[in-house]
Design a protein around this nucleic acid. Sequence first.
RNA 1: GCACUCGUAGCUCAACUGAAUAGAGCAUCUGACUACGGAUCAGAAGGUUCGGGGUUUGAAUCCCUGCGAGUGCACCA
Length: 478
Amino acid sequence: MQIEVALRAEIENAVANVFGQRVDALQIQPTNQEFEGSHTLVCFPLTKLSRKGPEETARMLGENLLQHSQLVGNYNVIKGFLNLTLRDETWVKVLNDIRANPSFGQTPPEGREIMIEYSSPNTNKPLHLGHLRNNFLGYSVAEIYKANGYTVHRVQIINDRGIHICKSMAAWKLYGDGETPDSSSTKGDHLVGKYYVEFDKAYKAQVKALVEKGMTQEEAEKEAPVMKVAADMLRKWEQKDPETIALWKTMNGWVYEGFSETYRKMGVAFEKLYYESDTYLLGKDEVLKGVDRGVFFRKPDGSVWVDLTADGLDQKVLLRADGTSVYITQDIGTAILRFRDFPKITGQVYTVGNEQEYHFKVLFLILDKLGYDWAKRCYHLSYGMVDLPSGKMKSREGTVVDADDLIEEMTAEAEKQTRELGKIGDMNSEEARELFKMIGLGALKFFLLKVDPKKRMLFDPNESIQLQGFTGPFIQYT
RNA sequence: GCACUCGUAGCUCAACUGAAUAGAGCAUCUGACUACGGAUCAGAAGGUUCGGGGUUUGAAUCCCUGCGAGUGCACCA
């Protein structure tokens, strides 16, 4: 890094000496492999200043550098590109500096703080392949910030409340027969996920039966007994009915235990968890304050809206006519809460799928309109879906790839390949198991991270674990 | 319909802020080594950067436009 700064200063001086004027935005880039040199100055933009052709301009600068520079040992000119070769002494010094610096590549903490949110699953089913991309992206960005001198706060919001968990609860109560993770030796999140599927099956069957009895589809969807139980549970939950709350806590507890095991296997962690059940009522006061200040407006029915048409977006509802919150209201509250919890953070990164791009655009605009200057430093780290060679993942069709299963398979495949190659030699079984995990998980992480986040991507499990090609195992082996 | 994103070699992906002959891996082909195959090694071929305009000394990259794919456009979350 030092060398780049020093070299730039020298080149800036050379430009000033030769053409009598300082230029700030010099384009210095790595020299192409096929030419001699390590750094290249692009001289085309300087021709206006030099009033000479690009090659002559480059040559004049090269000569000047040769005379005055401490760093440059030689130069060559190809078209308008001035290729610079540094002296051997320069490189020796660079390498010595690197050797003397134990934290090379890392900026020591500088007091800047940032919050990174990732994962943020629903609590009614286990994590899947999409969550893996999310977690690895979020965690990596956090690590990058850390290496750049930031103190990072890793958080997630857990969607522990709402009709989705009530569906699992309803199915468990109706058909569960008291089954627990212990009694069935099933991982908690998988058990709750199983009852979510049970619910869906029962619901569909019941709707079908009711339609056959002459009900309309719409009526049947409301009248299906399982749905009535689930809706009733949601109502009771909101009324804080002790029995419902107890069941909700129990089943969420199972899920959390399952999740933490998955996170441990993935190698990610969180500093603080936000629960939607704690935050879903937040934001209402902020919205009402916004109404008083004229940032938002009320419609005749009493509902509160924000008008974003001037920003090229629509009008969005923030509070219903009955005064209750909608989804974005709680996000407003949660964002503000987080900046209160961590007053020193300068911004927030939300790692969330690209289907929520519009939502975050609206959210950040609203926070800005409410006068929070940090709204400009909130960023939606958006990423595309993960497809499989067999096609799209669809929960209804059961083509979702479970995160635990996948990690398991990758590790097993790593073991198979390593044993075939006979590479484990005299390792004991403990060391070998560590190795398989490292290879399997490395394959997964590398493959999911090597693609531009915003692009939709194809995950090929078989390709990812290969010892050849652009893969994690290849890099680890090398 | 409107908005946003994406479109690069047969396939999966690179190309930082506009820069030199658009790069990798896989697959393919040729050769070496192999009893044969695999593995390995050496090499080759593979591109109108979706089409058409424009801006620029210079465009995969920026602008306009057409086409294709995806996502979003609930008083759901």
